[in-house]
Design a protein around this nucleic acid. Structure first.
Lengths: 250, 250
DNA sequence: ACGACGCTTTGCCCTGGGGCAAAGGAAAGG
DNA sequence: CCTTTCCTTTGCCCCAGGGCAAAGCGTCGT
């Protein structure tokens, strides 16, 4: 059925260079994605303490954040852009296991090593903390620790969900589910409405839901022609909600 | 692509009846699967204390152990048989998210409610503990708690693995991976060799790896004809290891 | 030992989606 | 502003695997 998207055939491979720049954190209190992130659990005092141990890192598109198998020495909170979480399969195919959106917390696996890789899909910024600093801070701030745990539960739920999405479903069901799930995630960030940002490429979507890039493209086009969605630059607008939900359930 | 295996079309639906019988635990110290279970972390003293809070439950084939959404009041350690972990999708399809083999620990989700259902695929026995008793016991036995954590990590790894298996891979690759993964799991229990028990039905395998029952059957037959495996009652024997590994990597 | 039931295997046909490749667009770099 | 480089869309063809259904087997119960 489906085709290895070898990493070599991707238009460009992830670049080995890591973080592009580091800046001191200033004014977490004015950070616009804070409400959607784990930092929402911190009051003014804790926040400035937290600021002191973090740095803002920027990543150019395709820059690696961390690699599977590597020691997990840093943790991240995405503040803008999009991070791809992926595993490279023995046959060269890339399976995207998740997307890190602004507000998402990344890089704290159960063990001491990463179990998947992460790179920036577009220009991305993230607050970076040394694992030890971060853990020590969390252990001194119980509310924060609980919030972290919540984040982990949410990630697990998403993974479970994704597992059931990947199975043998029709292309339009997969794409419809994908759009609805992205919409739900953006709503937690923006509140937003019918417009769903999709900053990732068609290839990324395919590697996430388990479809060929051509099929992804065709399916978007079909949904557009059917009047279910409208394709807009870097995203879609949902025109017929019930129809989309209906498709997602197939 | 793929077909809803509606729960109604399954030859028989899971039965609503729960545990068939309960017996006091006697002689955990002689339990043959103990080395493969979380109980392996307990010494003689702790073991008899542990015995006191558990009961051995038996389940007839297709009996429900617990259901998605239900409060998770009991936890289980499988001692014999096979448990199917599954979610029912909106379209009626059943996605099997894992198999509980002897030694596996089940029923302690992150939240207070189960996120998937479980039923017995064949006649099954399991040690059952009240969640509270179990948690209290674990908190008083640090080695046991760590062992529990290890079990959770292993389960997560398996789920991650499964997520990459489900994607768009060829039928023989999926089946080959499945056989190798089952073999690896049995080896931890039996040590065993080339013979891999497969107590679950073809339908179960299909709902796990994302293939139609007919395709599952055809693929097993093909691998048999090619001399890669030999189909034996309730399992397979691996004849050509390198070939199987090779297929699994596709 | 026999019969019934349920699971597995197999054949036949068909369709959804992959492979390939070219054309069309958008964005980045000079 | 123009050129280059990706990325997306689309057409054409083909095949892996799904749908359906019948036949084959094993097993369990009486």
């Amino acid at each position: 059925m489906s085709m290895p998207t070898s990493i070599e055939t991707l238009s460009r491979s992830p670049t080995a260079n890591r973080v592009r720049g580091l800046k001191l954190l200033a004014n977490c209190s004015r950070c616009s994605i804070r409400p959607a992130s784990v930092c929402s659990a911190l009051d003014a005092g804790a926040l400035s303490e937290f600021e002191a141990i973090g740095r803002e890192a920027s990543f150019a598109p395709r820059m690696i954040v961390f690699m599977e198998g590597e020691r997990a020495d840093w943790v991240y909170t995405v503040t803008s852009g999009l991070v791809r979480l992926f595993r490279l399969l023995p046959n060269g195919q890339r399976q995207i296991v998740g997307f890190g959106l602004p507000g998402d917390f990344l890089g704290l696996p159960r063990g001491e090593r990463h179990v998947y890789s992460a790179d920036a899909a577009v220009g991305t910024t993230a607050c970076r903390f040394h694992r030890q600093d971060f853990i020590m801070f969390a252990e001194n701030h119980t509310r924060f620790l609980r919030r972290l745990h919540d984040a982990a539960v949410k990630a697990l739920d998403l993974a479970q969900e994704q597992m059931t999405q990947l199975g043998p479903r029709r292309a339009d069901a997969k794409i419809a589910s994908f759009i609805l799930s992205m919409r739900a995630r953006w709503m937690e960030i923006n509140g937003a409405g019918e417009s769903v940002p999709l900053p990732m490429s068609r290839q990324d979507i395919g590697d996430y839901v388990g479809l060929n890039i051509a099929t992804v493209s065709r399916t978007f086009t079909r949904l557009d022609r059917q009047g279910v969605i409208r394709i807009v630059p870097k995203g879609v607008r949902i025109l017929n909600f019930p129809a989309l939900r209906q498709l997602a359930e197939q």
